[in-house]
Amino acid sequence: MVNLETLTARSLRHYELGRLRMAVRVAIVLGPIVAICLLEPVGREACACCAGLLFVASVWLRFRSRGGVESVTTGLLAGLIPLAAALVLTRLDPGCAVAGPISYCTGFSLLIGGAAGAVVMLCERGRAPLSNHWLLAVAVALLTASLGCIRLGMASMAGVALGILVGRASMRGASVAP
């Protein structure tokens, strides 16, 4: 005869292992993105640091709950826009890395951040309303964006962060308005 307590404990262990396996699978998506970012000669250390942080955060969020899984998916999707844009900008204008806070580079970051914020809002709309999961999605998007933006300086990072918040808020305002 099976002891239900033992069975529950063993089932829980299998459950946690299954969740961890599912959570770690995010590496399949993150791997190529990080590899592309690390190919860039400038700011590799910072990029690797951000990649490590993004991986840990993604695994943890996905492991924790389904809401976390959705936040990571939304964040990665949204963060890809500023990441790609930042990589292109680094190629086109290497001067952006040393440009001041008031420059067209910051303006550009704000703009692409806005696009990412809009994506966050659009993804949220298609899913069930889950308390403050949008904040987690924004955090993941910012970390993803930082893989490309970190080499453009803190001003660009701040621009993207602000852009994401503004973009999300404006999309939300547009969808709520009659």
Binding site: V2, L7, R10, S11, L12, H14, Y15, L17, G18, R19, R21, M22, R66
Partner: peptide, 14 residues
């Protein structure tokens, strides 16, 4: 039945 329960538990997140 035990094997099934463990399998369900490990795949429930998917």
């Amino acid at each position: 039945a035990q094997e099934v329960l463990f399998r369900i538990s490990s795949r429930i997140s998917e």
